[in-house]
Nucleic acid binder design. Structure first.
Lengths: 196, 196
DNA sequence: CTATTAGATATAGAATAATGTATCGTTCCA
DNA sequence: TGGAACGATACATTATTCTATATCTAATAG
């Protein structure tokens, strides 16, 4: 019974097992009892919404409502980056960083005049801000931005700016030309519409 | 009580009301009783996981598990595109189209030799494939790809290819240079981590 | 202004199912 | 063999969900 929730519960179980967490350990973190978790996972009963949320939070997961049309996109996001290198940084916290960098570049263009390199940096940042970057990738971006801030007023800024532009472009290219979507997400979850 | 699920239930309620669906109408579509929905929405009791899934499915929503780190990114996706123009196409169904277009460009480069325009098309498609496009934007891309397919072997392909490259670039620019994230999503949902 | 109807949401009480406590059966390792 | 960790089970308690009915609001007729 409870066919709708099977998939979600199975996902949670997989993640628990993949993390090497026992039902007991999880029960302590989640505030449920081990007995409860056992019955839920084995399908003998069905959890209340709150119980399920507690469970998943203890596994570092969040229950979210997603419009059906967006489900494949979200699956892409989750699967693609989640498997590539375990830790994923997000869009929003970094957005401020990007916005600040964007303002910096615009200011530099205004003060010292526009240049091909600055244009390239501005453009590339606009791109990188859109796609979801891995931790490594984001760290590289952070470093480059920091460098730009440091050397912005320096006497020999030009070669540094060029180098930053090149590095950003390189990162951009590596992302654009990598094949994005793997064969299929492991999750089942109906996708709904085909084309249009 | 049931503090964890309040946010999710509130979201569902908002969406029901925004859609102009009554509790009774929803109860029929979801297979629950109106009484049930009333108590759930007013916080007098807490739904089972399956009941909640039934509810949300009837509202064209899907309950998904998202790694905490990805929550802001998913919120961006949902909020940004969902409000911009109601209908959202997803990542996966269009991926095939992009992949086919990519193969086409590579084939043309192989047959007729590489050109700046073809390079630009290939690059831009790589970008557009990444970001999530609105319906309008995606339709434009579709048209351009269709045109490319039609004129690929034509005698005067060159000017057409150039025009397609320009159009794609233009679309790309409009996306890259538009400020992406609005002030804040209406949804509360804790985000957890700040930076790193 | 009152009465009535219809559509909505809220409430009452019975039936059913989830949840906690305590315990049991296995397996693995000392 | 002992014990320690894991997952499963039994039963008491509490909460859910359903059927049926009540309340509320707005609109219309008398």
């Amino acid at each position: 019974m409870a066919y709708q929730s099977e998939s979600l519960i199975a996902q949670a179980r997989e993640i628990r097992e993949a993390s090497g967490v026992s039902q007991r350990a999880l029960s302590e973190r989640a505030g449920l009892t081990q007995s409860h978790i056992s019955q839920i996972e084995s399908g003998k009963m069905e959890p209340g919404l709150s119980s399920f949320i507690d469970l998943t939070r203890a596994l570092d997961l969040e229950v979210m409502l997603v419009p059906k049309k967006l489900v494949p996109a979200v699956l892409n996001l989750v699967k693609a980056r989640a498997t590539r290198d375990m830790h994923i940084h997000a869009g929003q916290p970094n957005d401020k960083r990007f916005a600040r960098a964007d303002r910096l570049v615009k200011k530099m263009k205004h003060l010292y005049g526009s240049s091909a390199d600055l244009d390239r940096i501005e453009d590339t940042l606009g791109f990188l801000r859109r796609v979801n970057l891995s931790d490594q990738e984001m760290q590289l971006v952070r470093e480059l931005i920091t460098r730009l801030e440091r050397y912005q007023a320096s006497a020999q800024a030009a070669p540094v700016v060029r180098d930053i532009a090149q590095n950003l472009q390189q990162l951009r290219n590596s992302i654009v030309h990598a094949a994005p979507s793997e064969p299929r997400p492991a999750y089942s979850l109906d996708d709904g519409d085909a084309d249009a």
